[in-house]
Simulated scan of single mutants.
Amino acid sequence: MAAPHDVPDAAALVAAVRDFLETDVLPAAEGRVRFHTRVAINVLGMVEREIELGPAQAAAHAVRLAGLGVGDDAELAARIREGRDDDPALLAALTAAVRAKLEVANPGYR
């Protein structure tokens, strides 16, 4: 099946904007604009990582939830709030979920 969009794809467009901000805008910016440019660069990096890693992370998360016998995060949260979950796999699943989030938000936090 053909993709609905031509090249460049979303990931390439985001990378191009991030590169422009890093190489052209940031060196010329000062003060508040420099700060906001750094924020924008970081946000675009997160978007790039989510595009790249998101599908595999979503699949792995669904497997973890199924292994715990829940259908989604809301159901898992309800079980935790009710104190009904003493499954030793819970901590491992939650740790993996947080690591996946950090892998997108800031890989340096690992």
Rank of each mutant, 00 (worst) to 15 (best):
M1V: 13
A2H: 14
A3Y: 11
P4Q: 07
H5L: 14
H5P: 03
V7C: 07
P8S: 08
P8W: 07
P8H: 05
A12I: 07
V17M: 10
V17H: 03
R18Y: 02
L21K: 02
E22Y: 00
D24V: 12
D24T: 14
V25I: 15
P27S: 06
A28V: 04
A29R: 00
A29E: 01
G31N: 07
R32S: 12
F35G: 00
F35A: 06
H36R: 14
H36G: 02
T37P: 01
T37N: 03
V39H: 01
V43K: 11
L44A: 02
L44G: 01
V47K: 00
E48N: 02
E50K: 06
L53S: 06
G54W: 04
P55R: 05
Q57W: 02
A59K: 13
A60L: 10
A60M: 07
H61P: 01
V63L: 13
V63R: 15
R64P: 02
R64W: 10
L65P: 02
L65N: 03
G67P: 08
G67S: 10
G71F: 00
G71M: 04
D73P: 00
A74D: 12
E75M: 08
E75Y: 01
A77Q: 09
I80N: 07
R81Q: 14
G83I: 08
G83R: 03
R84Y: 03
D85N: 11
D85R: 02
D86Y: 05
D87A: 07
P88Y: 02
P88D: 07
L90N: 01
L90W: 00
L91D: 11
A93H: 01
A93Y: 01
L94H: 01
T95W: 04
A96D: 15
A97H: 08
L102H: 11
L102N: 13
V104E: 03
V104F: 04
A105N: 09
R110N: 08
R110L: 11
R110A: 14
